[in-house]
Amino acid sequence: MSKTRATAGYKGVSQAAAQRHYDVSDDFFRIWQGPDLNYAAAMWEDGDDTLEAAQARKTAYLIEQANVRPGSRVLDVGCGYGYELRTLVEKYQVAEAVGITLSEAGVDYLHKQDLPRCEVRLENYVDHRPRTPYDAIISVEAMEHFARPGLSGRSKIRSYRTFFERCHRMLRPDGRMTVQTITWGHRFPLNIQILSDLYLATSIYPECNPPFATEIMHACDGLFDVLELRNDRDHYARTAQMWVDRLRDDREHAAELIGRKKAMAFERCMGTAVQAFTEGWLTLHRFTFRPLPVRLRPARRFLVNNVLGRGGTPKT
């Protein structure tokens, strides 16, 4: 089977792989993520900041960058345990917040919360069909799951473009979209220990492969303008360090909940993340997008670059 046919119709991470990672134990995740079960990088300030305050700041940043207002309809792609959904309905008074996820545990958890004006679906974004376009779309660390290891760079970009095409259709012309995602950096040191840690990470995060920022820019070309872009890898390093510290402090309880081997694998994986984001072989990007009024084909770079060069040097 050719690569083209093998990747045709690819929808990102399978539901089985997503559930293998996320449907472990709510109580285990609560040990290190805190009571809000916020499984993403926070946004820190200097000084004695707390994890809970930094997570609330991150969520507020993403929601406000998406220009959410009272009465808005908002889609959360990869909603997890619903921290953003709760914030949207409780603090921003949206008319409707829709969350989609591949985690049964997340859906069950949110259904028990019975949040007003909130709908949660066990669904892939590719299959989502809104009743009417959304005013805003938010996606927090879901894009890492849109391409599996082993895909070529071209296939990865094709997968990300599917995401941007779907979001362009689901978003109002004056809407906004914010995306927070882990990305590969450009300081990747190859040694046995790092490769071993990355191999372990593939068992904790099956079918997961972060994008390069350049792949995202290529994939959204002709569909969205990038209004703002932040590289906050130091924020992820600090978040992961907090997670590691909490796991170590309650190591025995974690082992009781999911088994010692798996608990230690999570702890080692989080420790590797601290090093990865500190040294820059992983980064964290926060994007703010605005849809283009008309969908365009990606720019023909070869044509543009060479046409501009044909005239030679202008005479003064």
Rank of each mutant, 00 (worst) to 15 (best):
residue 142 A to I: 06
residue 125 Y to L: 05
residue 139 S to K: 04
residue 141 E to T: 13
residue 124 N to G: 02
residue 145 H to C: 06
residue 126 V to S: 02
residue 123 E to C: 06
residue 125 Y to D: 08
residue 124 N to S: 08
residue 134 Y to R: 00
residue 142 A to F: 12
residue 147 A to Q: 11
residue 138 I to V: 14
residue 149 P to K: 04
residue 142 A to C: 15
residue 142 A to D: 08
residue 126 V to E: 00
residue 141 E to Y: 09
residue 136 A to I: 02
residue 131 R to Q: 13
residue 131 R to A: 14
residue 132 T to A: 13
residue 122 L to H: 12
residue 149 P to Y: 10
residue 145 H to R: 01
residue 150 G to M: 02
residue 146 F to A: 10
residue 148 R to L: 08
residue 125 Y to P: 07
residue 138 I to T: 10
residue 142 A to N: 12
residue 124 N to H: 07
residue 145 H to L: 04
residue 143 M to H: 12
residue 133 P to M: 13
residue 143 M to L: 13
residue 149 P to A: 05
residue 133 P to K: 15
residue 129 R to T: 15
residue 151 L to C: 08
residue 135 D to L: 00
residue 150 G to R: 00
residue 137 I to K: 03
residue 149 P to V: 06
residue 143 M to S: 09
residue 138 I to M: 06
residue 126 V to I: 11
residue 127 D to N: 15
residue 123 E to P: 00
residue 147 A to D: 05
residue 132 T to Q: 10
residue 122 L to W: 11
residue 148 R to K: 02
residue 126 V to A: 03
residue 147 A to C: 14
residue 130 P to R: 06
residue 133 P to D: 14
residue 121 R to W: 07
residue 142 A to Y: 10
residue 129 R to Y: 02
residue 141 E to G: 14
residue 148 R to G: 00
residue 147 A to F: 03
residue 131 R to M: 09
residue 121 R to P: 14
residue 139 S to E: 04
